[in-house]
Design a binder for these strands. Structure first.
Lengths: 330, 330
DNA sequence: GACCTCCCGGAAAGCGGTTTCCAAGTCTGC
DNA sequence: GCAGACTTGGAAACCGCTTTCCGGGAGGTC
């Protein structure tokens, strides 16, 4: 590959001068030399070696984002928000997907640390397992000790900047809205018990029902994805309203009902959580809690880059959106 | 940050020995020294500086993927396929999104070149503009001249390894299947004329109709996304069957019809292209052409990494999937 | 015109690793 | 017991770039 030295030689100047011309510096370079260097670089097709720059400057211009699954539109939206924010700062993005394996998440933090990325963003729910979370914390702390910056979208469990959606509150508000429509018998497709996001939404929902004096919902655990919702829906017994703790599960539930000839919302009402954009044309339109996913991603990056002391943006509000998948009870 | 020198000092060995123990080498290191080094590294929380390694080794372990829009499930699936393939090779991934700006694509290739990534993957349709494509070619050639590797998912227009879906053939087969159902009056929601993927699908469809002796379809251009499909559907006149050149446009069209009280498939049949997984629960279920997106992404990465001479995998076959959004004509 | 700044070009010292080359052991085989 | 072949540890060159430090010349002041 073409190096700076090649360019300097071709232009008949020193390395220092070539560097100052091509890669930004506070120092001025005279017009004639500057032109010669630029021409040489162009002729040779020079591209600065960023690994070398990073090493010399002691700072890189890339950030790392770790998500669970890029094909899940929830993560895609969050990641997209963060990537747009990164682009405006002139930063590049390395993306890692854990496929929901917490060990992978830890491994990625180590790898991104080794890459000396400017910041790492952990996107997605924490798990309840204290030991795993502890190891992740350690890995992050080690990275931060070396000057790294980190933020998380999810729960404030890592001791880093955090953007935390109001999962409990959003679910509670949804519960109240559904109760308002006259529902009293609920089921919750609750996802995996160890996933904090899922657990929070389930708990917020249940608690709100309790405060309203309504009976506790039937809680059905299962995977956090479309098929999990599909399977869990089969086990619902006697509820008039089903809350799936995220939208893709709700879509799975709707599919299960459709196949069995159960009409939504006539026979049963269904609600989800997140308000995934890709699902906006779903039939019936899904009642859900809208989260500003892109903003949250962007905000988290901002925090990671700018805050010295860990800042926690608690309870990013969701907005209940009532659509045709729920009906008013007679 | 902790450096290798710190570790070596702490362990009382030379830099060379520490390097050999920690960062893999053909050379053996005695058991006792090895243990001392490992203990020191662990105590200090050492993480190799990959920028330095990349510089010293002259080879990096990251690849770059450039997509148009991560929140579009089409790209998410392709990227996910490539990322899984990368992970099995122990490679890290940098992702760039162009937001459909071809200039951005060129800029990303330059940036990834500067990063000295092992390979770059360009995912998504080429544009018809010769000048833009030419500049992208130049940028890629320059990168490859320096030992970089590149591949593309889309059309074979860049002189690099390419995985090209059989857009024309898939659309043609779809046209024949729809004609088989008795349709004769077609419209095509054709997307932007300059997008090669869109144009190919439209052309393949039209040509097949022509070969069947059927009248040419009404062709309506517009954006390549959901809203483009929505808007284009409004302009359809007198067709019994509408082909949207991708699934998200088809979903937009379905939404437009639903709002206007036009029944699908009773009043009009609708088909898309791609078979996006997220849409599998859409109502009515979308007739489409299934493309093996994840495989294509993985395959492209494989080509980039292993092939010396540009290899073109032409015409990755799509499979027509007939679902309820189309009906047989009486 | 002497003296001081200021400006700009270049030499060279890093940045944190890898790897080549040596030297000093340690094993073999006879 | 000793030459020759392997091992293994360390010194130092090098990867490509940034930046500090120097020095020479131009411009300004009295």
């Amino acid at each position: 590959m073409v190096t700076l030295e090649d360019v300097a030689k071709q232009a008949g100047v020193s390395l220092a001068t070539a560097s100052r011309v091509l890669n930004g510096s506070t120092r001025q370079v005279g017009a004639s030399l500057r032109a010669r260097v630029e021409r040489a670089a162009d002729e040779l097709g020079y591209r600065a070696n960023i690994a070398a720059q990073t090493l010399a400057r002691g700072a890189s211009n890339v950030i790392g984002i770790v998500v669970h699954d890029l094909t899940d539109p929830y993560f895609a939206a969050l990641a997209d928000g963060a990537m747009r924010a990164a682009a405006t700062e002139g930063l590049l993005v390395m993306v890692g997907t854990t496929h929901r394996d917490p060990e992978q998440e830890i491994a990625y933090v180590a790898t991104l640390h080794a890459q000396r990325v400017r910041a790492v963003l952990l996107v997605g729910s924490r798990v309840a397992d204290q030991r795993v979370t502890g190891r992740l914390r350690d890995e992050l702390a080690r990275y931060q000790a070396g000057g790294g910056r980190a933020a998380c979208v999810g729960q404030d469990l890592l001791g880093v900047d955090t953007v935390a959606p109001a999962n409990r509150e959003g679910a509670a508000e949804l519960a109240r809205a559904l109760a308002e429509l006259g529902h009293t018998k609920f089921a919750v497709l609750a996802g995996p018990p160890h996933l904090v996001t899922a657990a929070d939404r389930c708990a917020g929902f249940s608690q709100a029902l309790d405060e309203l004096g309504l009976p506790a919902p039937q809680v059905i655990h299962g995977p956090f994805d479309r098929d999990g919702g599909y399977a869990a829906a089969q086990q619902v017994k006697g509820a008039t309203c089903v809350f799936a703790v995220n939208d893709v599960m709700a879509v799975g539930a709707l599919a299960a009902y459709r196949e069995r000839g159960v009409r939504v919302p006539d026979d049963v009402s269904v609600a989800g959580f997140d308000d995934i954009v890709t699902l906006r044309d779903h039939v019936p339109a899904l009642t859900t809690v809208r989260l500003p996913l892109k903003d949250m991603g962007a905000r988290a990056l901002e925090l990671a880059l700018n805050e010295d002391e860990p800042v926690v943006v608690e309870k990013v509000a969701g907005e209940v959106v009532l659509r045709e998948s729920v009906r008013r009870m007679p």
